[in-house]
Amino acid sequence: MRQLSEHLRTAAQLSSDEVKALAAQGVKTLICNRPDGEEEGQPSAESMRTLVESLGMNWYFLPVVSGQVMDEQGDAFGEILAKAEAPVVAYCRTGARCGCLWALSLRHERSGERLVEALKLAGYDMPDFFKRLQG
């Protein structure tokens, strides 16, 4: 997991056991940024929603196609974060889309340089996306 803010971590695809562990750790909200059917054997958003809600957590589904993260999706991610009960974990296949969405959600509040620095500190290495933020 990567820590992007005091209340937000990102992750790769979560298993049922990992979701249960997150609930036990006090995570209140999960955001899925992975479209259904992206990879064989991937749990469906509906099955994850059912599990998450059965554990008393909040669920948001904002599917984003890998490599096609749009500014508007970043805005939608920011809207979810603004109302989500913390702590929050967002996940996709590798966690990269979640990092992109987080940065895009803050693009009007922070400079591209500050966002790139924060992503790098969290362990992200996305040179093309970094150029987009700084461009």
Rank of each mutant, 00 (worst) to 15 (best):
P43N: 12
S44R: 04
A45N: 11
S47V: 15
M48W: 05
R49N: 05
T50K: 13
L55S: 07
L62N: 01
P63S: 15
P63Y: 08
V64D: 14
S66G: 15
S66Q: 12
Q68P: 04
D71Y: 00
G74S: 02
E79V: 13
E79C: 05
E79S: 11
K83W: 07
A84R: 04
E85G: 06
V88E: 06
V88Q: 08
V89H: 02
V89M: 11
V89R: 10
Y91L: 05
Y91V: 07
C92E: 04
R93P: 00
R93T: 07
R93Y: 06
G95E: 13
G95I: 05
A96K: 06
R97M: 08
C98F: 11
G99E: 06
G99N: 02
C100K: 09
L101Y: 06
L104W: 01
L106I: 00
L106D: 02
R107H: 12
R107Y: 03
E109Q: 15
E109D: 14
R110T: 01
R110A: 08
G112V: 07
R114G: 01
V116Q: 10
A118P: 02
A118T: 04
A118N: 15
K120P: 03
L121R: 10
G123A: 04
D125K: 04
P127S: 06
D128R: 06
F129M: 09
